[in-house]
């Protein structure tokens, strides 16, 4: 092999999650082999048995922390990683499993498992940033693969990643989708949700349900009357905010404000 600059080492780690965000990397069918040609995939168990020792130049971390063992493992990951990027709503905000934070997890365990004593779990599901410093948080449930490639490329080249933090409303305008709130077709979290999906839901005639979490400076309090005017009850409003990003602070506060 010709001598060349050392290729950067990439590691992909998983905590409590659905695997969808790391799958997004394998879903880059047109780019995967090019990406793999420019980096060493040093640890990515979903894709390969190869395990190269750290330290790693970039670690992508999927999933939230729900067990004491995982919290410990995460600190080991951080120590071996020059840059740590969280991918997706679980790693960035706790994910759907953070709904346990609003309930009694022991009761949850009793409901799902016959022998709750076999199960070891924490009372909360928490984002990666609650445990270790994070260099970049990529939003989405799932992440957008275009944004994933942008962030990966930016970090490997040492430049800032270009990921807009404005709302979904901007994307609706960009794609020429009719506003479902204005037409009254649907209740929509687009005004308070970060862009990244391409305004998918409004384009499919349904309201945004907040996969990418709160945008910069969201104002859910002022959106509430608009949603209530569409017939949403306080309980509906609470459900709307308590989904994949339920534990992100602006959505948590707004969800707590409603209820029924």
């Amino acid at each position: 092999m010709p001598r060349a600059a050392r290729k950067p080492k990439l590691a992909v780690w998983k905590f409590a999650s659905c695997d969808g965000c790391q799958l997004s990397l394998l879903d880059c069918e047109d780019e995967l082999l090019a990406v793999a040609g420019n980096i060493d995939i040093a640890y990515f168990p979903e894709a390969t048995r190869t395990v190269l020792r750290g330290p790693y130049d970039v670690s992508l971390v999927e999933g939230s922390i729900t067990t004491a063992h995982d919290a410990h493992r995460l600190h080991q990951v951080r120590r071996q990683s020059r840059r740590l990027i969280t991918i997706g709503a679980c790693a960035t905000a706790g994910g759907i499993q953070a709904l346990r934070n609003f309930h009694d997890v022991e009761e949850f365990t009793r409901q799902v498992y016959a022998h709750p004593d076999y199960i070891s779990t924490l009372k909360t599901a928490t984002p990666i940033s609650a445990h270790v410093p994070v260099d970049f948080e990529l939003r989405g449930c799932p992440v957008d693969k275009g944004q994933l490639l942008e962030v990966l490329t930016a970090f490997l080249h040492g430049r800032p990643a270009h990921v807009p933090t404005h709302g979904v409303c901007m994307e609706c305008k960009q794609r020429g989708a009719v506003c479902v709130l204005v037409t009254g077709a649907a209740a929509c979290l687009g005004p308070v949700t970060q862009a990244g999906c391409g305004a998918l839901c409004p384009a499919y005639g349904r309201g945004c349900f907040g996969c990418f979490g709160p945008k910069e400076t969201p104002n859910p309090v002022s959106l509430a009357p608009r949603l209530a005017a569409r017939g949403l009850t306080p309980r509906d409003l609470q459900r709307l905010y308590r989904s994949f990003n339920a534990a992100s602070e602006p959505f948590r506060q707004e969800g707590d404000r409603h209820g029924g």
Binding site: A16, Q97, R100, F108, Q111, V112, T121, A125
Partner: peptide, 9 residues
Amino acid sequence: EPPRFFEAL
């Protein structure tokens, strides 16, 4: 893999 309790939530 840690449980996520879908049936409960």
